[in-house]
């Protein structure tokens, strides 16, 4: 029967093919689980080398992200959890996004630079520290134009550079 007519098959062949199909269900489920893991934890960031940093074009002739990072000495910085960067996952209002940076004792830190990648001027603020500060701590409210990474670059007195970055989602907000 299956030899004569290729479009239709017998009951047994149909049942065995259906069994194969059913067996793929657990495979499909595990696939979606791994794809859907924490969509908000996209902490992924372009690598530290300048060539991997994407060139974000801006509208009015102020430095691009790549230029500003290079000027601030981002090249060769390593990502480190020692730089405690605290930002909200979702910003209620893009005009008021709290950014908190804590980089350990101030005697070891020279300066901290904060970048907001997709702003027209990515370099937001630079703070120069002295040992009298006690702790290299900074907390402020910033403006963000759209959803983007917020990076904190810490330049130590011994020349080493550490950074940390997190993604902040900027929403339109409810009524008004």
């Amino acid at each position: 029967m299956s030899k004569e007519n290729e479009k239709t098959i017998g009951r047994r062949e149909f049942l065995s093919s259906a069994a194969v199909l059913t067996a793929t269900i657990p495979l499909a489920l595990t696939l979606t689980k791994s794809l859907g893991a924490s969509p908000l934890k996209s902490d992924r960031m372009p690598g530290a080398s300048a060539s991997a940093i994407r060139n974000v074009p801006v509208d009015s002739g102020v430095g691009t992200l790549e230029e500003e990072l290079a000027k601030a000495g981002f090249k060769g910085a390593t990502k480190s959890r020692q730089v405690k960067l605290r930002v909200p996952t979702i910003a209620e209002n893009g005009a008021i996004v709290p950014v908190q940076v804590d980089a350990g004792p101030a005697s070891k830190v020279k300066k901290i630079s904060i970048f907001i990648d997709k702003n027209p001027t990515p370099l937001a603020i630079t703070i120069n520290y002295k040992p009298d500060n006690g702790k290299a701590y900074f907390n402020a409210r910033m403006r963000m134009k759209k959803t983007s990474n917020v990076r904190a670059l810490v330049v130590m007195k011994n020349g080493s550079k550490l950074y940390n970055s997190k993604l902040v989602k900027v929403t339109i907000g409810g009524c008004g």
Partner: peptide, 18 residues
Amino acid sequence: MNAGAALSQNPYIEITLS
């Protein structure tokens, strides 16, 4: 501190001192 226009309206800053 050298800042751009990224500080929000009525800017707020917090730092520490020994």
